[in-house]
Amino acid sequence: MPHPDQPLTNDDDEEPLLSEEDEDLLDWATMTTVYAAGYIRILADAIERGDAELQVDPVAWENTLTAAEGAMVEQMRGRLHGPTAITAEDIERMRRLRELGSAALSGGERSPELGPLALRSMGSLFGPDWQRAAQKAAFCARALNQEFHPRSCT
């Protein structure tokens, strides 16, 4: 057994815990969920404050929330596991949130449904500790947005 300060290694005789494909899927789903929660938090906070600038790039929103829906489908099918059990209603809620957010980001209506829907969607992604997770995710999403879309951030 290795010393506690030594990293765990996988001996050549042992099978990996996850296949490379499953590991890639898990990495993709993790990053998707983090950035989706970040963008959801940023958008919901900006709408709640009444900000003129919603601080999320519309293309990043659309792509990330579409990917989050896909990750939720994979979780519902049993290929992924997360902190909550995803249902078809959770996926439909995320789809509705994506649509309402896209409308708001394109200068359309800022639906009063968006805020409560955002909160329920983050709860679906992270469970009861969604607030802390969403704050950290928003930090990551702002950093990513600044790197790729510097003019869309404040």
Rank of each mutant, 00 (worst) to 15 (best):
M1A: 14
M1T: 11
M1Y: 04
M1W: 02
P2Q: 12
H3N: 14
H3A: 14
H3W: 09
P4D: 07
Q6P: 00
P7E: 10
D11P: 15
D11T: 11
D12L: 15
D13T: 10
E14S: 13
E15S: 11
P16K: 09
L18M: 08
S19H: 02
S19P: 01
E20I: 13
E20R: 15
E21G: 09
E21W: 01
D22I: 01
E23G: 13
L25H: 04
L26D: 09
L26F: 07
L26T: 13
L26V: 13
D27A: 15
D27P: 00
W28F: 11
A29N: 11
T33N: 05
T33D: 03
V34S: 12
Y35I: 13
Y35M: 14
Y35N: 12
A36W: 02
A36F: 04
A36N: 06
A37H: 01
G38A: 05
I40Q: 08
R41M: 06
I42N: 03
L43T: 10
A44K: 07
A44L: 01
A44M: 03
I47F: 01
I47A: 06
E48Y: 05
R49Y: 06
R49H: 11
A52L: 13
P58V: 08
P58I: 06
V59Y: 05
W61I: 08
E62P: 00
E62F: 11
E62A: 14
L65D: 09
T66E: 15
A67S: 14
A67F: 04
A68K: 02
E69N: 03
G70T: 06
G70A: 08
A71P: 11
A71R: 08
M72S: 12
M72Y: 06
V73N: 07
E74Q: 10
E74G: 01
Q75W: 00
M76Y: 05
R77M: 12
R77E: 14
G78M: 03
G78C: 02
G78P: 05
R79S: 08
R79F: 03
H81E: 13
H81L: 11
G82I: 02
G82R: 03
P83T: 04
T84N: 08
T84Y: 02
T84D: 05
I86Q: 08
E89F: 05
E89K: 14
I91W: 04
R93G: 03
R96C: 02
L97D: 01
E99T: 14
L100E: 13
L100I: 06
G101Y: 06
A103F: 00
A104S: 13
G107L: 04
G107T: 01
G108T: 10
E109S: 14
R110K: 13
R110Y: 04
R110I: 04
S111P: 09
E113F: 03
E113K: 13
L114P: 05
L114Q: 09
P116M: 06
S121A: 11
G123Q: 10
G123N: 07
S124F: 02
S124C: 06
L125R: 03
L125D: 03
L125A: 08
P128C: 00
P128H: 01
D129E: 09
D129R: 07
D129A: 08
W130S: 03
Q131N: 08
A134C: 02
K136F: 09
K136Q: 12
A137S: 12
A141Q: 01
L144Q: 11
L144H: 12
L144C: 01
N145C: 06
Q146F: 11
Q146P: 00
H149P: 01
P150K: 11
P150R: 10
P150I: 11
R151C: 02
R151Q: 15
